[in-house]
């Protein structure tokens, strides 16, 4: 039923597939994700909806082949159908005209950041992007991010692309040049934490994007339960975009460090 209509290899182990999903594409908004199972034997995985095409009734997903389910998904051909597709899940991002928005993404974290960047760009925000990676090979979706950003910076830890250094090294310059009204950060927890500590301006609203490590996608399994203020909430229900100022970071840190996909 959910047929793959196009498939591209866009990076090392990084694939982009377009799937027919007539019901999901009508409801999907930036920030939403889907649960997908390539066949009846593979575990369901959560993937961000990157693009929506209403005329073709398709959604586009980008994923890195790093476990058995994603490898299986990557091995499907154009014309094959996926076994299960559930969505749109999670809460959509709040998109309006904020002013100057800083979008930070590290390696595959950029996948979930891209639809939000595009929506912010469309809503007349000035999008300033910073992409980071260990090395040039791990950098994802750089041209796509460039297209929806007024300013884009690339940082690599070995200097193979862009400037040499960590994402946090670039923040001071950006903040000194302009007033930032909102920040989005996507990537592994260590990077998110590093970036949030290095933000010179404390009062800017900070949003983090966390990929839900869930089995069901709607908050039943409890794998992605985190603490927000004084209550427990599931990332797949409240997220993937979360308010960094309200999250119990020590709880999230142990959880993220130890969560298994």
């Amino acid at each position: 039923m959910h047929k793959i209509v196009s498939k591209q290899i866009i990076g090392e182990n990084l694939k982009r597939i377009e799937i027919v999903a007539p019901v999901i594409c009508k409801k999907a908004q930036p920030g939403h994700f889907v649960m997908i199972a390539p066949d009846d034997k593979s575990a369901r995985i959560a993937l961000a909806i990157v693009e929506i095409n209403l005329s073709k009734e398709t959604i586009t997903l980008i994923f890195k082949e790093d476990d058995s389910s994603t490898k299986k998904l990557g091995s499907l051909w154009i014309g094959d159908s996926v076994f299960a597709l559930l969505g749109p899940l999670g809460r959509p991002s709040e998109i309006k005209e904020f002013g100057n928005v800083l979008c930070i993404g590290y390696e595959t974290g950029v996948v979930s950041l891209l639809p939000i960047c595009r929506a912010l760009h469309k809503s007349s925000n000035k999008v300033i992007s910073v992409l980071g990676a260990k090395t040039k090979r791990n950098l994802c979706l750089e041209p796509q991010i460039h297209l929806c950003s007024q300013e884009a910076y690339v940082m690599s830890e070995d200097g193979s692309i862009g400037k040499r250094g960590y994402i946090s090294d670039s923040l001071e310059k950006i903040f000194s040049e302009q007033k930032i009204d909102r920040i989005y950060v996507a990537g592994p927890f260590s990077v998110i934490q590093d970036v949030l500590i290095s933000v010179p301006e404390r009062k800017v609203p900070k949003k983090i994007l966390i990929n839900p490590m869930t089995i069901d996608g709607f908050g039943i399994c409890g794998c992605d339960l985190i603490k927000i203020k004084d209550r427990y909430a599931s990332i797949s229900v409240e997220g993937p975009e979360l308010d960094a100022d309200q999250i119990d970071f020590s709880f999230l840190k142990t959880k993220m460090k130890n969560s298994r996909k």
Partner: peptide, 18 residues
């Protein structure tokens, strides 16, 4: 309750049953 190795029964049962 947030430590590594703490799971919910729902997760355990889902993983084994599914």
């Amino acid at each position: 309750a947030q430590l590594k190795g703490v799971h919910f029964a729902q997760e355990f049962l889902m993983r084994t049953n599914l």
